[in-house]
Structure formats: structure tokens, C-alpha cells
Design a protein around this nucleic acid. Sequence first.
DNA 1: GCCATCACG
DNA 2: ACGTACGTGATGGCA
Length: 426
Amino acid sequence: MDIAINTLEHQLINVLVKIEINGVKIDIEKLNDVEHRLLNRLQTTTEKIMEIAGKEINLNSNEQLSTLLFETLELQPKVTSKGKSGMITVNKLHLTKLKEDHEIIPFILNYRKINTLLSFCNQLKEVHPKTGRLHCNLNQIGTATGRFSCSNPNLQNIPNVKLKDKDNETDELKIIASKFREVFIAKKGYVLIGADYSQIELRVMTEMSQDSFLLDAYNNGIDIHKLTAFKVFNCSKISEVTEEQRKIAKTINFGLIYGMSAVGLAESLTAITKKHHSKEDAEKMMSDYFTQFKGVKSCLEGLVDYADHHGYSRTLFGRIRPIPELASNDLKIREKGKRLAMNSPVQGSAADIIKMAMVNCDKAITEKGLQSKIILQIHDELLFEVPENEVEIMEKLIKYEMENVVKLSIPLTIELGKGANWAEAH
DNA sequence: GCCATCACG
DNA sequence: ACGTACGTGATGGCA
């Protein structure tokens, strides 16, 4: 591990301690209201399911649910994957596919959703009796890639549901889910400012690959997914790219970061277009992509070679991750190792960058004698609690520190938002 | 203690 | 021939 990363992690300790001690304010009344509405829905939904099923089952038992659906009610499974116990899977993806096949399915999906949301209510209620705020644990070395994780409670997986058309939304559960980030509020006289890095992982990929088209796109403010579609689908003009083509291109760009497989891409393609796409379709598309983006292709190959040779992958800033999977005798595990070798430097470099930005923001706040505080980090986003009279200076400070934390071949950009709660600040 | 599920980036 | 996207944490059922 490079000395730079060691130093960074050392400096970061103090920042994380401050975040944990400071905590975040929760709107308890709103939270209670959300919980109340969920409990009501839970009761009516459970009753309805038992009525349709004609008997009592434990809905939390996937085994009992699977038996009910595929034996008692004789539904035809639509996916082949089975769990280790041989049970036909009853996950959200499969149940959604079965939605039209039986009236009980939508109720089961809702039951699951309600239960999940209620568990968030329970976690968020645990405010500290003395501070009246919610304090999480930030686990600095919690992940293999260099991100940190968050627990007790985990504030990095709070539902993030945005309503497209607030007035016309009829799905009550969706409305309730959208309230969770409204529960995180600023204390009196303060506002929350949220700052997200825009496409940080794809920018890292651009930096690592030095791919000429990606560099050009980011340096000239060209829509990266549109450009990808333009080149993959061989359109004559960039303006001719359709919405669906852009969506597919976005999926490819995401897939790159994960060490995309043809089958994985084919599944995503099927989901987007609602038309079946074979593994061969996906392979063709990937090959078209790599013909165009030659820099990305050689970069990914280089990442695998590097990890193969050294036994570990390395981020732009020298953070390493051992990848013993590459030395396995099992082909499947070696394939997994290749994906890790491609993904870890990307995810890890992005983590390095935001960790550096956190240290720099904290330092700048202290040096200027401001009262503002970092209160959360969600992988590519920072949330600040800012006194009203510091809003203007903090907006400038955050933008400057986050965007200029490192000098890359392309700009890093952030999106800023502010408001009385996290939903508004996002 | 492991598995399946589902929330986030 | 095979079966896949990367990284987490909380929960409840089950052995």
C-alpha cells in the first residue's frame, strides 16, 4: 500500500470520528407517521393474502411461500434458478414476472415492500437519548475496495425514491417510501447541502484508459451515454440516437465498470427493451463497443494482466486489493477474479477521491473557522449540515474542494442541492 | 451460523 | 459445458 493511501486513511480517522459523534437529526414525528401508515397497510395486506391463500402461512418463510405458489396454487415458474436447498426462488424479479399470473402476487410484493420499509423505521428510531440524534458506525476498513461501510444503523442504504410527478402519483407505498429521506433534517437555523460526484466511476475509467473518445466527451461536455450509443449503434448523427439506444449505452457503460459479461448484459438488455436478447446479441454489442473504444479495451486487459502478475489490483492512488481468485484452479473463480481486477481499481479510485475530498473539506472548514459539518458520506455523495449564514461560503467551498481534490485529464464535477431535509438536498 | 431477500452506491 | 455483472448491512427463517 502506498504511503499516500496510508496518510490519507490516517487523516480520515479524525473526520470519521467527527461524523459519528455529530450524528444526524431525525424528524421523529414524520417517522412515526410513516410507520403508522405502514403498519396499517401491513395489516390489510396480510389479511388479504391469507384470504386469497385460504390458509395461514408465514410470509417471511420463503420456503412456505414457494410451496404455496408453485405447489398449492400450481403457478408455472418463470425462472429456472433455484436456491441451494432446491427451492424455486421467490425473489422480487421472479414475483414481478408472475404478477399477471395470480392475484395474490401483487399483495405479496407489497407485503415484502412494507416489511422492508418498516425495518428502516425501526433502525431510524434509535436516536441517542442525550444528543437526540442518530449516530452510525463508519467502518473505515470495512470493504475490499477501499470504500467504507456503515452500520448500526446503515445510513448508506436508506431508500432513495423520487416521485416523477408528485401530484399524479397513486402508488401509496411509493409515496411512503419517498418520505424516508425527508426524515433526515437539519437542526434549527441550519440547512442540509448535498453534493454528488457526477459519474465518478466512469470518469475514473476514462482517466485510467485515456481512451480518446471518452477524454474528448468529458473535456467537451458531451453526453457520455449518447456518445456511446452513437458509436456502438453506428448512427450517422449524434442527434439521431434514440432514448432506448441511450439507455442501452448507459447499461453498457455501467457494465464495463463491473467487468461485464455477455449473459449479464443480455439480461439487462431484455429488461430495458422488454424484448428477449440472447447472449449472442450481447456479445455482438460488446464487440462493437470494444472496436470503437479501443482505449477501454486495452485498459481492461491491462488491469487483468496487472492483477494476474502481482496478485493484487491497484487504484490510481496506490490502494491495493489482493485477488487470489486469479490463481484458482476453478475457471468460474478465475472469471470472478478477472471481474474483480477490472472493477476494484475503478470503485477503489473513486473511493480514494471522495476520501481525499472529505479530508480537504474538513480541513477547509476548520481553517475558516466555520460551524458547518460533514454529516454523511454515501459513496459518491457528501451531506453537510450548514448554518444558514454559511450557505453561500459552503457552496463555494464544497464545489472547490470536491472538484479540485485531484488533477485528472478530465474535470470532476459535482451536483449541489440544498434544503431543509435530505430529499430536498439531493 | 448460513441462506435468501432487498435497500443503497 | 458451465453460469456471471461490482461493493456493502439488516432481517428472519432454518438447521
